[in-house]
């Protein structure tokens, strides 16, 4: 569905190249997590997909066509901070993407209410964002992302600003949303546990600067429980991933202790 072929990128203001020769493929309705150290260019991958940065070398394909030839609205981006508009109610925030497409008020209201229902926030429709908790705001932000009707969701560390318990709950919630209606989801995170718990497949950005990306299937089916992460094969997998991410400053035994 989406393919990166030998994509390299460098920011003008940086001396060093950000990543080199990234190649990967994402299937339809696949839930993929991309992990990498902070500053390794995870978000830049999204910026390339949604057209905020121009392609420098290599090629990106969407359903077999070059990215430059497709309307970038095939994807919807959910930022790390909810970026809700503080002057708009929950409902009006969710309506936003359709409003920009000039869809009639009645229609967008109906669809926004429907979505708020699915994210479990219908009763908060007429409340300003400042009255919502961080977790609720992220759910509103997710509903807004869904509202675009895009075929692919790009979630950029959507839970990283939340407290630990809320993050765990929202992870379950996201999987649940995915199971209710499977979509293509790319989920960027620096949290290996999060990646393993959520995704069918994990892409790891290796090296610094990033020299390539490797893919690991998560040997779990949905639904999952937290204890799944403690299975020996998952613990091993996590160890591998951490090694690939370059947490090599620690000895291996320390890493294992840290995991268990």
């Amino acid at each position: 569905m989406l393919e990166f072929r030998d994509v390299s990128f460098k920011y003008k203001e940086d001396d060093e190249i950000l990543f080199k020769n990234l190649s990967f493929f994402i299937e339809q309705n696949e839930f993929v997590a991309i992990v990498g150290a902070s500053g390794c260019g995870k978000s830049t991958i999204f910026r390339l997909i949604n057209g905020l940065e121009g392609l420098q070398s290599g090629e990106i394909f969407w359903r077999g066509r070059k990215l430059a030839e497709v309307d970038h609205l095939f994807n919807a981006f959910m930022p790390q901070n909810d970026l809700l508009l503080p002057w708009r109610t929950t409902l009006k925030n969710v309506e936003m993407p359709l409003e920009l497409e000039s869809i009639s008020k009645a229609e967008r209201r109906r669809r926004a209410l429907e979505l708020l229902e699915t994210v479990g926030l219908a009763e908060w429709a007429n409340v300003l964002p400042r009255e919502l908790s961080g977790g609720m705001r992220q759910r509103v932000s997710f509903a807004r992302t869904l509202m675009t009707g895009a075929d692919m969701l790009l979630l950029d560390e959507p839970f990283s600003a939340l407290d630990y318990l809320t993050r765990l709950q929202l992870q379950d919630w996201l999987v649940e949303q995915y199971l209710i209606q499977p979509r293509t989801i790319i989920f960027v995170t620096h949290d290996v546990d999060e990646a393993l718990y959520l995704a069918k497949r994990v892409l790891i950005m290796e090296g610094r600067p990033v020299q390539g990306i490797s893919s690991v299937d998560v040997p779990l089916t949905y639904p999952r429980i937290r204890a799944d992460l403690l299975k020996p094969e998952l613990v091993n997998l996590k160890k591998q991933l951490l090694n690939k991410l370059g947490s090599s400053t620690r000895s291996e035994s320390e890493v294992v202790n840290h995991i268990v």
Binding site: L121, W124, L132, S133, G135, Q169, D172, W173, E176, P223
Partner: peptide
């Protein structure tokens, strides 16, 4: 994975 509808379940107001 039952559908969650309680907004109090997580993320209190």
């Amino acid at each position: 994975y039952k559908k969650m509808n309680d907004s109090e379940g997580f993320g209190f107001r």
